[in-house]
């Protein structure tokens, strides 16, 4: 059974400048033992989506449906969602230095979650903290549990953050840019650790990142977000081999490639997507991507500016894209 089913999720904030529609109706599923990668630029709504699933949005209007293993979370009492948070669904944040409390030891912070959800004794919770720190590969966990976040290196801190998320044996882990603050080798270690835990424990993982390299490494399914909407959804292989949305193509083209140098020589420079991400306060009419879209620039379509294109199936595998341009929308 599907672990997490999100339907038509929308998040709106009212700010002094006006209403910000950060997420405009997003659907996705997360299965046990699979990783959903959500990719997009800053402001695409990917982090907002994850916080909305966790019920961590304060002062925002969240609508739609978030079904966690049969429990509807949107509109549920705070207490219901709180009891799931940290217990059955846990979150790993980007910068562990600021996300961990500077005044408490790592062990305390992990034990606290265990005590909260299981009512365990101080001693049991501490033992669990040490155990889970060992699980994520922190050497001498018994000693290091007594240290403070600032005494840990960046990679170790991120492992501690993962340990915190794992301490109550959750079924769903949402990792919001978990490796962005780390250098490449440590990044690989942390991702491998997450994948190993997913295999061993059958976790469902949502991996939020702006880094397609990370997606390629870990994701089974991918959701590409732009301007608060999903623009493409596919399994990872299909997305990387045959992207069906011009934005996704742009993202893939802007990746540096080691194999592209030979034939084209130095002309194979990085191809950036022109323009900048849309304003959430006054988004462009129709498809949010059309002002930057090469297809629109080449052959403008009324459909691109009339209404926001729906996400429709474009391949039998379940590959979906939100582009009305004939080049993409034509049957495959």
């Amino acid at each position: 059974m599907t672990l997490l089913q999100v339907r038509d999720l929308a998040v709106e904030f009212s700010t002094a400048e006006g209403l910000v529609r950060a997420v405009k109706g997003v659907d996705f599923d997360v299965e046990r033992g699979r990783t959903l990668g959500i990719v997009g630029e800053s402001g695409s709504g990917k982090s907002v989506t994850s916080l909305a699933v966790m019920g961590l949005h304060r002062g925002a209007e969240v609508t739609g449906s978030v079904d966690f293993d049969g429990t509807e979370l949107i509109g549920a009492p705070d207490e219901t969602v709180r009891r799931l948070r940290g217990r059955r669904m846990a979150m790993i944040f980007q910068d562990a230095l600021t996300a961990l409390h500077p005044y408490f030891t790592i062990g305390d912070q992990i034990a606290e979650a265990h005590r909260e959800h299981f009512g365990s004794s101080r001693r049991t919770a501490w033992a669990r903290a040490v155990e889970v720190l060992g699980d994520v590969g922190i050497p001498e966990p018994a000693r290091r549990a007594g240290e403070y976040p600032h005494q840990f290196s960046g990679g170790m801190r991120q492992r501690a953050m993962i340990a915190l998320a794992l301490s109550c044996e959750p079924e769903l882990i949402i990792a919001d840019e978990p490796t962005t603050a780390l250098d490449v080798t440590v990044q690989a270690q942390v991702l491998d650790l997450l994948m190993k835990l997913k295999e061993e424990r059958g976790l469902g993982i949502i991996m939020i990142t702006h880094d397609l390299g990370v997606i390629a490494r870990v994701a089974d399914d991918v959701l590409v977000m732009y301007g608060g909407s999903a623009v493409e959804q596919a399994d990872a292989d299909a997305l990387f081999t045959a992207p069906r949305h011009p934005y996704t193509r742009g993202l893939l083209d802007s990746l540096p490639r080691l194999d592209a140098g030979g034939a084209q020589g130095e002309e194979a420079a990085l191809r950036a997507i022109p323009g900048s991400p849309p304003s959430l306060l006054s988004p462009p009419a129709g498809c949010a991507f059309h002002p930057r879209c090469p297809l629109y620039a080449a052959a403008p379509q009324a459909a691109c500016t009339d209404a926001r294109p729906p996400l429709v199936q474009v391949a039998p595998s379940g590959h979906r894209s939100a582009c009305v341009h004939p080049e993409v929308a034509s049957p495959c």
Binding site: L56, G86, A99, E112
Partner: peptide, 17 residues
């Protein structure tokens, strides 16, 4: 507004804590 307070909420701690 600090991230570590958000982490405390993400852990499922009650608002009082």
């Amino acid at each position: 507004a600090e991230p570590f307070v958000r982490t405390a909420r993400a852990k499922g701690l009650c608002e009082r804590k």
